[in-house]
Amino acid sequence: MSTASKVLAELIDALRCLPGVGAKSAQRMAFHLLERDRDGGRRLAAALTAAMERIGHCRQCRTFSEEPVCALCAGAARDRHVLCVVESPSDLAAIEQATGYRGLYFVLLGRLSPLDGLGPDELGMDLLRRRLAEGEVQELIVATNPTVEGEATAHYLAQLARDAGVRATRLAHGVPLGGELEFIDRSTLAHAFGGRQALD
């Protein structure tokens, strides 16, 4: 892109690192900040700098945190005997918002996927193994996604738990609430059918 200002060109180019932002949107964002919202722009710059400099990973659960141990792991109010394993921080947020779960989390930041170059080392499995060996955790809740790779990861996690003598549980898969059987994909339906439960 040819612009009169070199700094402006750099800003537009830098904005393109955001997902879903192409040249056109980047230009629109840059012009908006310069024309109408310089304060907003300064705040964004300061927040970005602070986040990029200070946010790392929690030493215990690997989620994003500016402290060595995140607030969830450090908090006294959580049940330390239950550990829920999720693929990403957004999965953690979803469970926090939707359920009354009071235990702790472990964030893999991915799933076992040879084609993406993700193996046990990248997913912090050693850290998890040590955590289970400490003996505090009594139940490992496996909340990886119900995809092929998520299932492979769940299988691996179940083995880890078994080696450590910890009980492993898996989120149920089934028919979504408010759904109609006729419109559900066949894999989900087959799974839900296979995992049917007794009516009490």
Binding site: L112, P114, G119, P120, Y156, L160
Partner: peptide
């Protein structure tokens, strides 16, 4: 090398 050799080798070793 195939990444699966490393990934799956380790996954299958822990049994």
């Amino acid at each position: 090398e195939l990444r699966a050799w490393r990934v799956l080798g380790e996954a299958l070793r822990h049994r």
